[in-house]
Design a protein around this nucleic acid. Structure first.
Ligand SMILES: [Mn+2]
Ligand SMILES: [Mn+2]
Ligand SMILES: [Mn+2]
Ligand SMILES: [Mn+2]
Lengths: 222, 222
DNA sequence: ATATATTTTTAGATAAGTCTAAATATTTAT
DNA sequence: ATAAATATTTAGACTTATCTAAAAATATAT
């Protein structure tokens, strides 16, 4: 059991896991194709393969769900991804916008002993540099109270605990705004027209957050 | 230029590099097949491909040599392998017999920034956990005076600085003999019949080293 | 120098992962 | 309830890396 999977199989399982986090239902072929940046035809091929291997439950025209075996594999890949990102930032001094792409490669290194030693070396971190929870060796996530920053009311203050987008361009934009994990964001005004937010950053400077930006900011109300 | 190579291409280049270290001549198809654990037919296919890409100089029936471009790539992979091994031992506490296989995967992570930061993090080590020299970012190796332990005469003493075999089984054997890098080995007797060596380890205990073992031990005369 | 042995290449297949275009099923809108 | 739109699957092809078996070239030994 737990035969070694290819990078590609692992990436598909991760895609199904992430897509399912949102929809909570069986994930459509098209949605997986979008996540994987491939054609729907390729997805169908792979769904048959993963289904045969017992990693997903797949029904023609009905979509796919992870089996418990598949879920375990997906969680393990996510654990590796997030631990490596944490290593890159905390030990090697990378900035948070640089680490995702490298971790996309590192997450496929198979040794479990390696990742468990890394976890130990990092002090068993609960969250990665983007605020995403890191599953423990037995697959448990540490959840946390968090809301999208736009759910705060005028006058309320939140502390940034996570971002929902890992793209370099997005994180670079936050860097320019002097926003990082731990930054306090106070709501000064909310536009009902374009959903933009006027905010006070770290009691230091005022800026306007477009909806495009604010919908990716997760805060803890403070 | 320096297009990204596949894991397989990198492994072939490394094999040619290592084979050439011994023979110093163009490397035969069969020799590469042995190193790579594949069929000679597969090697021929790959030689054509690497030749087309300008990474090797290949002549039908005459063997292959690395081009300067190919040599650069091979050296870069070796650098990654040895730095990762050093990380695994020095930071994560792995024993030297466990790290080779994991490094075989890690050596294919492509980011140059990653490996240069890792090098810095490790303090720019010159040798890996098996005593092999680690090429610097510009591809230079730090060489050292070393001989095979059997070249010592009776009464002479050497300090182990490297091993020529990275297999877990071999290193495990050394562990059992309490031999590791830095261990002193004094020659008590040499058998001309089976080339075995009677030695004194760390002025502590006496053992017999078979030729199979001693031919893989590199020492600095002391 | 000729036969034999060895090495290397070619030919033809296979498996994984991908694609486009065509066929089919499902969903949505009238 | 039908037609139109959308989603999904199938068919057929391509690429990479591998294999075995057969053919060709080179090296070795008599
Ligand atoms: Mn990431
Ligand atoms: Mn992350
Ligand atoms: Mn090694
Ligand atoms: Mn080594």
């Amino acid at each position: 059991m737990t035969a070694t999977l290819t990078h590609t199989e692992e990436n598909y399982l991760k895609a199904i896991y992430k897509a399912n986090e949102k929809t909570k239902e069986a994930v459509s072929t098209n949605m997986i194709a979008q996540y994987m940046n491939t054609s729907p035809a390729s997805v169908t091929d792979m769904m048959k393969k993963l289904s045969t291997k017992g990693l997903i439950i797949y029904e023609r025209y009905k979509g796919s769900r992870l089996s418990s075996e598949g879920s375990k594999s997906a969680t393990s890949v996510i654990r590796k991804h997030r631990l490596w990102e944490t290593f890159l930032v905390q030990k090697l001094g990378f900035s948070w916008e640089k680490v995702h792409d490298i971790a996309e490669e590192l997450e496929h290194i198979h040794s479990e002993e390696l990742i468990n030693r890394l976890d130990d070396y990092l002090g068993f971190p609960k969250y990665d540099p983007h605020g995403d929870p890191i599953p423990s060796a037995d697959g448990k996530f540490t959840l946390r109270e968090q809301i999208i920053v736009s759910q705060l009311n005028i006058g309320e203050v939140g502390v940034l605990v996570g971002v929902k987008n890992h793209e370099t361009s997005f994180l670079d934009h936050l860097n320019k705004c002097h926003i990082s994990l731990g930054t306090s964001i106070a709501i000064l005004d909310k536009s009902s027209f374009d959903k933009s937010l006027q905010v006070h950053i770290d009691n230091d400077h005022q800026i306007l957050l477009t909806h495009e930006v604010s919908k990716n900011l997760l805060v803890r109300k403070s």
